[in-house]
Design a binder for these strands. Structure first.
Lengths: 226, 226
DNA sequence: TAGATTGTTAATCGATTAACAATC
DNA sequence: TAGATTGTTAATCGATTAACAATC
């Protein structure tokens, strides 16, 4: 179990199961069926059973899965039965929101270091953090043994920052910069670009009353990214 | 073309093609091959050609795709050859970062209205915005004919807000709340929960030196979400 | 012309679903 | 016991890749 030959699409669902199980636990459920878990996630019960069965036999016929035990198992499988320290680069509006976000600590993550290259920001306090000079990135990451990075820089800076973090030993990157990073294969990378998600939706939304559409037409929207 | 029977996975890649083509255009390229586009996105050339061929014949043998024309086509296909007004609910740290984000306007989106339920925030100016009372949500959305919503509330408020927005005519929702929303099938929903992405990465990161791991162990990480 | 690259087909690969025996 | 639900198999469904004729 916890093999590395699990289909990536299955790995992608495990955190959703964990999150949903946590809510169920807070509601007082001690047991949950694949059907109920699937209902809460709009995923089929068969899929959930198949996914979980890749890691062991966690359920019991007739009653379903024990919530607390399954949470423990998933946290072990996902390696969030510990706290992961992260380094944040880019203390703009988004970076500050991430520094303030309480949801990381509650689910196994903690921003330990924050960097920027703006002399006005370096040394500044942001909540419990002091913004570090990005020039110190490599040294600070190695000293703190950081393995996860969060990129909240402009797109134009992201590739170079990513390479430096990888050089300093980072193995996973969560990038909010709207650009695809070129990195060694063994590096885990996940992207969050809200515009990508919005455009996936507008594909399906289609036709609009032409009053609103005319208001700001085709060439009014430049291609600019950054 | 622009049919609704395009595989969702293909629709999901189109915005990536558009974004990458825009960068290529900024670099001065007038033409790009499927191979080069694929290289920049870590996607196979065959896949890109197959995806694009579902909407028409945009390329030319021997030379590739004309960048400007393909950008125009993709913007038309994705319906971002216009500006989409959006309503934001939840003006916390994340909401403020979204209100300040310049990347929306540059790529076809604009936050037109911002709502909160905190009396201290209502009426407050945030950049060019005045925070509205969420009690006015339905009326304001209908008046402004808003079809896209962004949820940046705590998870506990998200489902109710989503239902109210849908009631007011919203057809697509981008939710930053870490919870799966139960909504009618015809509503488009996309989710951004950074912890989900982080946990997908830590699955692969695995073993850690036990000094760091011991520092904050299993039961130190509660399940709490909100 | 020769080299490059598209659009498309067929083959391969992978993921989801349906169904059910086992069993709590 | 009877009803519910798991784990697993086989069948279905969908997505990706390889290959190549067409052609710029």
């Amino acid at each position: 179990m916890t093999m590395r030959d699990i289909p990536p699409v299955v790995v992608g669902r495990l955190p959703l199961y964990l999150r949903t199980l946590c809510y169920a636990q807070q509601e007082g459920l001690t047991t949950i069926s694949s059907h109920e878990l699937g209902r809460r996630l709009s995923i089929s019960a068969a899929q959930i059973r198949k996914d979980l069965s890749m890691f062991g036999e966690f359920g019991k016929q007739g009653t379903g899965y024990p919530v607390a035990a399954l949470i423990r198992q998933l946290r072990r499988i996902l390696h969030v039965d510990r706290v992961w320290d992260m380094a944040l680069v880019g203390v703009g509006a988004l970076g500050r929101a991430l520094l303030a976000y309480q949801g990381f600590a509650k689910r196994g993550f903690r921003i330990a270091l924050a960097f920027d290259n703006d002399p006005h920001k370096i040394g500044q306090r942001v909540g419990p953090f002091v913004v570090q000079d990005v020039a110190r990135l490599e040294r600070a990451l190695q000293e703190a043994d950081i393995r996860l990075g969060v990129i909240a820089t402009p797109a134009s800076a992201a590739q170079a920052i990513a390479e430096r973090m990888v050089q300093a030993g980072v193995q996973g990157l969560l990038s909010y910069a709207p650009i695809h990073l070129q990195l060694p294969e063994h590096i885990q990378v996940e992207y969050i670009d809200p515009v990508i998600y919005l455009q996936r939706m507008t594909f399906y939304l289609g036709a609009v009353d032409q009053g609103a559409a005319a208001e700001a037409l085709a060439e009014a929207t430049p291609c600019g990214q950054d």
